[in-house]
Design a binder for these strands. Structure first.
Length: 195
DNA sequence: CCCCAGATTGTCT
DNA sequence: GACAATCTGGGGA
């Protein structure tokens, strides 16, 4: 499991820290797993693209929790999965955008209605559909092997292998270089986006 | 209620 | 590369 202190990292540090970690999801005796290859940081201040930037609402409430819980929201009729960062009351999170499928691959293919391993977890909405992540997981703690959690498999990703680009899809807000991608990963979102 | 933007994706040219 | 489908939450009346 991740150390209990991982949630105390600053948001951009957490976004980089999560690259290479394993995201697990267990539902109805099926376990899914993917190695995270792409994240984005949404900062607690000075970031108009962050859902928590304006004020606390029913949707963004869990973003103000102490870090280490799931923030799941729906957009464009799809779900997105985030890890809440920093300390209580700030309002920030890291969006998990893509992962390399490592376990439960056949079930993910069924959930995504595709045979392509490159089309299972290569986008925030795809990842949630493949792993059956929905709003019911909002607010769940990620440090217990229960429903959804994150583990460190021990293989450390060197900072030099993480590529930084602008965030994707942020339209009516300031664009910032807060997207982190495992360099040259064939499992990142795209292929039109830089890897 | 009603309106509409949006941290997306699939399809078509 | 362009564009429409899809739907929930937030804000205004």
């Amino acid at each position: 499991m991740l150390p209990a202190t991982f949630n105390q990292l600053e948001t951009t540090e957490l976004a980089k820290f999560l690259i290479g970690k394993s995201l697990f999801r267990k539902i109805e005796e099926t376990t899914y797993c993917g190695r995270i290859v792409e994240t984005e940081a949404y900062l607690p201040s000075g970031d108009s693209a962050c859902h928590a930037a304006a004020k606390r609402t029913r949707r963004n409430e869990v973003m103000f929790s102490s870090g280490g819980v799931a923030y799941v929201y729906a957009i464009h009729a799809k779900h997105c999965f985030n890890v809440v960062s920093e300390s209580e009351g700030l309002g920030s999170a890291v969006l998990i955008r893509a992962a390399e499928p490592t376990f439960g691959i056949e079930e993910m293919k069924l959930n995504r209605k595709t045979d392509s391993i490159h089309n299972l977890l290569s986008g925030p909405g795809k990842l949630c559909q493949a792993m059956k992540i929905d709003i019911s997981l909002n607010g769940m703690h990620l440090t217990k092997r229960n429903g959804v959690w994150i583990e460190d498999n021990g293989s450390k990703v060197d900072a030099s292998r993480i590529k930084i680009t602008n965030r994707i899809g942020v339209t009516s807000a300031e664009e910032l270089p807060l997207r982190f991608v495992l360099a040259n990963s064939e499992f990142a979102s795209g292929p039109k986006y830089m890897r």
